[in-house]
Design a binder for these strands. Structure first.
Lengths: 223, 223
DNA sequence: GATCATTTGCAACACAAGTTTAAATCGGGT
DNA sequence: ACCCGATTTAAACTTGTGTTGCAAATGATC
């Protein structure tokens, strides 16, 4: 039935792939080992043999997905050095959206993270430390660069860059998790091909937001 | 253990109250009838007797919560007529955050909606129609007023006000559903008392965002 | 080709959660 | 005091899900 978990691969790999798919689209709790095994065309027992239990499988999926993600989406987003912060922000948002919305092999990295954020499991700590924190640091750094252009000097970890980063992430995640509601609210529009328009909107909106946040603080410093 | 479902009330009311609490904090799927009954100090069978089944109970909770919400948070947010759109937006964001974050009796209206958005049930259509849509309309209208001040004429339902509204809602919901992650990312800060700071930030950020979005479109119309 | 570790398939088990049922209890009305 | 309907209770039933054990099959090594 499924394509990606190629029958050529060994059972362990097929399980890993199928599990990645299912965990990504259903989340840890709602995913069932039986569906994973069905998609992997493997036996229920195999999961116990190769990964001990469901959580062991999930742990391996996270590790594998993380390793792939680092390769495919390095923190600097493969942008040439010296690109302006606006373009860095746009690239960040676009890749963040793509990672969550896209289908296919590298799709589940973002979805897994989004699921963890919305419904944390006991592995949330690890996910944050190794996946979310680096992304967030990069985003905060970019935000700081944008603030710098407004004449405000902030460093990652300060209050303003942090909440701005949260506002940006929040928008992106909302467009993923809130898709059913958005479809219902606005039935005519928003197929998956609109990621570019979405990227434009969130980028513009956020740049304006950052500008406004720094603007509030600037007044005492200008004069 | 619990306070609100007062032992004085009849079983049906106690069940309704307890269910509101549990559904609000756990979501429909993760909530269990057994916990609801335990909190309501009622028998398992009572749910079947009074509400047919879990979904029937949930439906009644939504109806009751909606009726209360309309009374407590009317669409115009009880602002005096003639208030500026900035203040309307701030009031909207603040009440939206409060409804999700607060504890106590009227707390679960917002939480239920947020849970529905993040994990829709089969009743999502009804929730959207009667709760979310009106709120969204009001928000879009406010956004349009803000755009008007920038010299751009848009009406609710147009693309720009819609995506701006989504960006605002997205930020608010992220601060509710993403609380565990935010705590982990920024352990020092963010107790529940920071709603005022959050309101300030999201309001400023969003006003700047709206300004930026209209700014992009304004250039051809100005000249 | 025999032996051993690895892998698979199947069935059973445990457990949690929603639902149902039948008996017990209670409260008014006559 | 008795009866009848409404309510409450306790227990069983059903289903879905994770886990485990075991026998059979497979494959590699000597």
């Amino acid at each position: 039935m499924e394509q990606h978990p190629n029958r050529e691969d060994d059972t362990k790999t097929r399980l890993l792939m199928a599990a990645g798919e299912v965990f990504a689209e259903r989340g840890y709790r709602s995913a069932t080992v039986r569906e994973i095994c069905r998609r992997a065309d493997a036996n229920i027992g195999a999961i116990n043999y190769h990964f001990r239990d469901k959580k062991g499988l999930y742990r391996k999926v996270l590790e594998y997905s993380l390793r792939l993600a680092i390769k495919k989406y390095p923190p600097d987003m493969n942008l040439k050095k010296g690109t302006g912060p606006e373009e860095k922000l746009r690239a960040f948002i676009r890749s963040f959206l793509l990672r969550m919305m896209a289908d296919g092999l590298p799709a589940w990295h973002g979805k897994l993270m989004a699921q963890e954020i919305a419904n944390p499991t006991s592995l949330i700590k690890q996910v944050i430390k190794r996946s979310i924190r680096p992304l967030n640091d990069y985003l905060e750094k970019t935000v700081c660069e944008l603030m710098e252009k407004e004449g405000i000097h902030k460093k990652p970890g300060d209050y303003e860059p942090f909440v701005c980063a949260m506002s940006i992430i929040g928008q992106c995640i909302h467009y993923f998790k809130g898709r059913p509601m958005i479809q219902a609210l606005c039935p005519e529009g928003f197929d998956d091909s609109d990621i570019d328009m979405l990227t434009d909107h969130i980028t513009n909106f956020s740049i304006g937001g950052i500008r406004a946040v720094t603007g509030k603080k600037r007044s005492p410093k200008i004069s």
